[in-house]
Design a protein around this nucleic acid. Sequence first.
DNA 1: CAGATTTTGTACCTGTAAGTCAAAAATTCA
DNA 2: TGAATTTTTGACTTACAGGTACAAAATCTG
Lengths: 192, 192
Amino acid sequence: MGRPKQFDPDIAIDQAMELFWRKGYAATTPQELTEALGVGKGSLYNAFGSKRALFELALRRYRDSQSPALAEILHGPGTVKDRLRQALHFLVDLDLADPDRRGCMVVNTATELAGSDETATELVRQVFNQTEDAFRGLIEEGMRSGEISSDRDPLAVGSLLLNTTIGLRVIGRVTEGPDRMVRVVDAIIDAL
Amino acid sequence: MGRPKQFDPDIAIDQAMELFWRKGYAATTPQELTEALGVGKGSLYNAFGSKRALFELALRRYRDSQSPALAEILHGPGTVKDRLRQALHFLVDLDLADPDRRGCMVVNTATELAGSDETATELVRQVFNQTEDAFRGLIEEGMRSGEISSDRDPLAVGSLLLNTTIGLRVIGRVTEGPDRMVRVVDAIIDAL
DNA sequence: CAGATTTTGTACCTGTAAGTCAAAAATTCA
DNA sequence: TGAATTTTTGACTTACAGGTACAAAATCTG
């Protein structure tokens, strides 16, 4: 009961996510948030409590909305190397297609808030763990099928692939064209 | 002529670098800067003009003070692969030895200021270019000596190594122990 | 309808960001 | 010594960050 909300908190979190993703945590102001969400300050603080709490909701939303795409490619059809290449190219295209070049919100959060926000840092770790695990699983599949040499440690290769995606998403923020990112993808696939 | 400065701007820039490195640009306040540099606000603004101008001096200082170490390893003694391994392990140790886990200031700047500070972004690009180039040079050396297979594109491998270092320095910010980073180094060296 | 509950809008608050300014202090030069 | 120049100190300023308070409004329940 009580007066019903005039806005959809779910949509508001999406909009907050877009803003935090583009500007980072510290550089995003409550005023910008109210403007982006189209909701007054009172409602915003009543609904979410604090800027930091809203940020964490936004970061979780980012993870939940963005993670599946990569996983789908990795579990999709094609050879293991094909799927790997597809997955990495997907990230390249994603980064370059974004006019704001926001990169990956998880990576951005890692470099902005590690050391000052343990909750956010833990969320970053969790996404990194999941991604590494997904890559490791795929590498193991490739080893079983004989497509990938079995004399490597699948976990280590998984770590390397996770590391590669992180690097790509940083480079995507500052690079002019696709050339360097494509070279990275070609080289890593070639090296497996 | 005129009254002599009571502080050494060179040292002040070093101290500003430490602070910006740890906290990033947006989260560092003039007050913290005056405390860290031990100089009044008037002097600070008289000497450096603005927070942003000081940041750019600090970022250049970072580049100038940190870049040589990696380059020295790459141009040092040992086989190419040895030097590569040394260089990457050097970064791992560097990141893990820092109690604040500040990572790399250039990478941090890439994710914080790309899109809002073109000067800083250009500096990031320049460091990335230099690093890629150094790796490419080393790979070419390894190809000439026969240590590295010549059927790869040295520039692409250079890009991959640059990308690897960037990823490592992000992971170094959030990781608990050395395990994952060591796996990355082992896997990339193994993959060459 | 009265009452309880929740949301909304707006005004308000405290603190601080980022910077400016004027006057005093410390130097060099004529 | 006096004039010129530059730095320092610290008070001052504008604007906004981040959040609170409260009354009015909108619902549900009995």
